[in-house]
Amino acid sequence: MPEPKKLIGEDGRRLDGRRWDELRPISLEVGVLKNADGSAYINWGKNKIMAAVYGPKEVHPKHQVLPDRALLRTRYHMAPFSVDERKNPAPSRREIEISKVIREALVPAVLVEDYPRTAIEVWVEVLQSDGGSRVAGITAASLALADAGINMRDLVVGCSCGIIDSTVVADLDDTEDKEGSGDMPVAIMPNLNQVTLLQVDGIYTRENFQKAFELAIAKGREVYSMQRDALAKRFFSGEPQPMEESA
């Protein structure tokens, strides 16, 4: 059996120089697409992901109308050039599954009951993919929903943790995801302290399972503060905002 590639060096640093619990660089921008009701763009490591929200709008086809709440549609889609080998643009089984878990991660935050008989569409387009693209997509999609002014209980933010060289680490990149021995994407509503997405693969002792899970939540909270900053930049531009003229 070939010796597995070393992903953590003697100095405790990972291949890209990060410590075990360090995030890759992340940047977020809100309100980037003119046509969309809400949008956000995220750079997370090499991930480049655009999220757009349309709606609430009329439901087509009509038979999908929900009488008491909005229908939230999600599509996670990877551009053909987003990966090393060209990806067939038709949705793969992986993308269909991820679209479903992303929807189930976002719906708990949205007051869908405030928009009966309508559709709210969330499009997540991966322009370049790296490890953790689904949690990056969720992080951007939740900002796009807030930007669209959809009533939300909380933002949703994600981070993935996993195991490389038998060590629990935060925020796996592409190589670590492929060569490592486990990936655990987690999404939370940080104020409500609720988990809205959890997927696990790899082999985790009970102790490592808890360590990776709790690390993913803690790192998600770090990303949450970046989400806040991105919204403040878009909407508050640092000015104090008294409202004398409000009717």
Binding site: V101, E104, L198, V200, Y204
Partner: peptide, 21 residues
């Protein structure tokens, strides 16, 4: 060996961290 090797949360609702454990 009692290791966790896969997991999936499903449906459009939530779970607390304590309930996951």
């Amino acid at each position: 060996d009692g290791n966790v090797c896969a997991s999936q949360k499903g449906e459009a609702s939530t779970i607390t961290p304590a309930q996951v454990l």
